[in-house]
């Protein structure tokens, strides 16, 4: 996406028009002022912020997709990943820049997992990057835990009634990642080919992985 303002206007505040990008809004001014004051006081440095922006930019669902593809093709790795999600990811060179644990939840033909953060927006950022807006907004947070089948249906996902849906509510310290079901007909696929069909939304658990699905 190249446009700054596109489709996230679900909130009811007024905006400066897009052509006024050179004049910062009130909250952007506040961000700049707080950052500069903290730097002047020596509490943080400009380099800290620059470095963390680079870290954020280095994270995307492609990392999670590589973890999933490896788990699908390497049973020993999958065992280790399910035992300790963070260590499993670190084994693949994915560093955890925050102090969070990761629990990987395996989907099977009997159990489908869905992740949410009802309180706010906790999310497995080291392996998926930043969450989409809908993950942070009230409808998903409020309803995922009480009517997950209806929520899944809104994503076009219809599970048989005999599939149990487990919803995991993230916290500041513990984050979750869904290990989706590997689609049938992919037995001879390489890990790279498999990773290419694993999407962010499948690792949140709102859709399955399908052949012909978009890249993560």
């Amino acid at each position: 996406m190249t446009s700054v303002h596109t489709d996230h206007h679900d909130h009811d505040h007024d905006h400066a028009a897009i052509e006024q990008v050179d004049r910062p809004g009130y909250y952007e001014v506040m961000e700049t002022a707080i950052r500069e004051l903290l730097i002047a006081k020596g509490l943080i440095s400009a380099g800290d912020i620059r470095h963390q922006i680079e870290v954020l930019d280095s994270r995307s669902p492609a990392l999670g997709a590589a973890v999933v593809a490896r788990a699908w093709t390497d049973p020993d790795f999958k065992r280790r990943l399910l035992a300790d999600g963070r260590k499993g990811c670190e084994e693949l060179g994915i560093s955890f820049y925050d102090d969070t644990q990761l629990i990987v939840l395996e989907n099977t033909s009997e159990v489908h997992n869905l992740i949410v953060c009802t309180l706010c927006s906790c999310y497995p950022r080291p392996v998926l990057g930043l969450p989409p807006d809908w993950y942070k907004l009230k409808p998903y947070r409020a309803r995922a835990v009480s009517e997950p089948r209806k929520v899944l249906a809104e994503f076009g996902t219809h599970l048989p009634d005999d599939v149990e849906i487990r919803v995991s509510d993230s916290t500041a310290a513990v984050r979750y990642l869904v290990l989706p079901l590997r689609p049938e007909g992919t037995d001879d696929w390489s890990p790279d080919e498999l990773a290419a069909i694993v999407t962010r939304d499948a690792m949140i658990g709102v859709i399955p992985v399908t052949i012909g699905g978009e890249a993560a």
């Binding site: 996230h8 809908w134 907004l137 409808p139 998903y140 409020a142 309803r143 929520v151 809104e154």
Partner: peptide, 9 residues
């Protein structure tokens, strides 16, 4: 709550 609008930016 209302239905999930799949917004992101």
């Amino acid at each position: 709550a209302g239905s999930v609008a799949r917004v992101e930016h």
